[in-house]
Amino acid sequence: MHTRSPLQITRSVIFALVLREMRGRFGRVRLGAFWVVMEPMAHMIVLGTIMKLRTAPTQSYDFLVFLLMGVAPFLLFKNIVIKIMGSVDANKALFSYKQIQPADAFFARCIVETCVATIVFLILYMCLTWYGYDTKIEDPFSWLFVLFLGIIFSFAVGIFFALIAEAAPELRNILALIFMPLYLLSGVIYPISKLPHTIIDYLLWNPYLHIIDLIRYSTFKYYRLYPGISIEFVVNCTIVASFAACAAYRLRKRRLMSL
Score class of each variant (00 low, 15 high):
residue 205 W to M: 03
residue 173 N to E: 13
residue 187 G to D: 05
residue 125 Y to G: 07
residue 140 P to Q: 03
residue 160 F to S: 07
residue 153 F to S: 04
residue 200 I to A: 02
residue 145 F to C: 00
residue 220 F to S: 06
residue 115 C to S: 02
residue 194 K to Y: 15
residue 201 D to W: 04
residue 191 P to W: 11
residue 128 L to A: 04
residue 115 C to A: 05
residue 145 F to A: 05
residue 174 I to N: 13
residue 161 F to S: 10
residue 197 H to Y: 05
residue 197 H to V: 08
residue 132 G to R: 03
residue 180 M to Y: 15
residue 224 R to T: 15
residue 190 Y to R: 02
residue 183 Y to T: 11
residue 161 F to W: 13
residue 169 P to S: 12
residue 218 S to A: 15
residue 164 I to F: 12
residue 229 I to L: 00
residue 136 K to E: 09
residue 167 A to F: 00
residue 180 M to R: 15
residue 117 A to I: 11
residue 120 V to A: 15
residue 117 A to W: 13
residue 123 I to W: 03
residue 173 N to Y: 14
residue 194 K to Q: 15
residue 226 Y to S: 00
residue 195 L to N: 08
residue 220 F to V: 11
residue 114 T to R: 03
residue 144 L to V: 14
residue 172 R to G: 01
residue 182 L to F: 13
residue 226 Y to Q: 06
residue 185 L to K: 10
residue 130 W to Q: 11
residue 199 I to W: 10
residue 148 F to A: 15
residue 207 P to C: 07
residue 147 L to H: 09
residue 201 D to Y: 04
residue 217 Y to T: 10
residue 124 L to Y: 01
residue 175 L to N: 13
residue 222 Y to E: 13
residue 193 S to P: 00
residue 219 T to G: 04
residue 157 V to R: 05
residue 149 L to T: 06
residue 219 T to D: 03
residue 160 F to H: 14
residue 208 Y to F: 15
residue 178 I to T: 14
residue 151 I to K: 06
residue 167 A to I: 13
residue 179 F to D: 14
residue 183 Y to A: 06
residue 171 L to Y: 12
residue 137 I to S: 08
residue 170 E to A: 12
residue 150 G to K: 01
residue 195 L to E: 10
residue 170 E to Q: 14
residue 129 T to C: 08
residue 193 S to F: 06
residue 219 T to P: 01
residue 228 G to A: 08
residue 216 R to P: 09
residue 179 F to S: 15
residue 133 Y to C: 01
residue 188 V to R: 09
residue 188 V to Q: 08
residue 127 C to H: 11
residue 115 C to Q: 01
residue 170 E to Y: 09
residue 189 I to A: 10
residue 196 P to V: 12
residue 168 A to V: 02
residue 132 G to K: 05
residue 178 I to G: 09
residue 190 Y to G: 10
residue 217 Y to E: 05
residue 168 A to E: 08
residue 118 T to Y: 04
residue 187 G to E: 05
residue 136 K to S: 12
residue 132 G to F: 01
residue 198 T to P: 00
residue 163 L to A: 02
residue 195 L to F: 07
residue 201 D to Q: 05
residue 195 L to Y: 09
residue 123 I to D: 03
residue 178 I to C: 11
residue 214 L to A: 07
residue 123 I to N: 04
residue 189 I to R: 12
residue 173 N to P: 00
residue 206 N to R: 06
residue 226 Y to T: 13
residue 200 I to K: 07
residue 199 I to C: 05
residue 192 I to H: 10
residue 171 L to S: 12
residue 152 I to D: 03
residue 183 Y to E: 06
residue 150 G to D: 02
residue 147 L to M: 13
residue 178 I to D: 08
residue 154 S to V: 11
residue 180 M to D: 10
residue 134 D to P: 04
residue 176 A to I: 14
residue 165 A to Y: 04
residue 172 R to K: 15
residue 158 G to N: 13
residue 145 F to W: 04
residue 176 A to L: 12
residue 184 L to T: 10
residue 165 A to R: 08
residue 167 A to L: 15
residue 161 F to R: 02
residue 165 A to V: 08
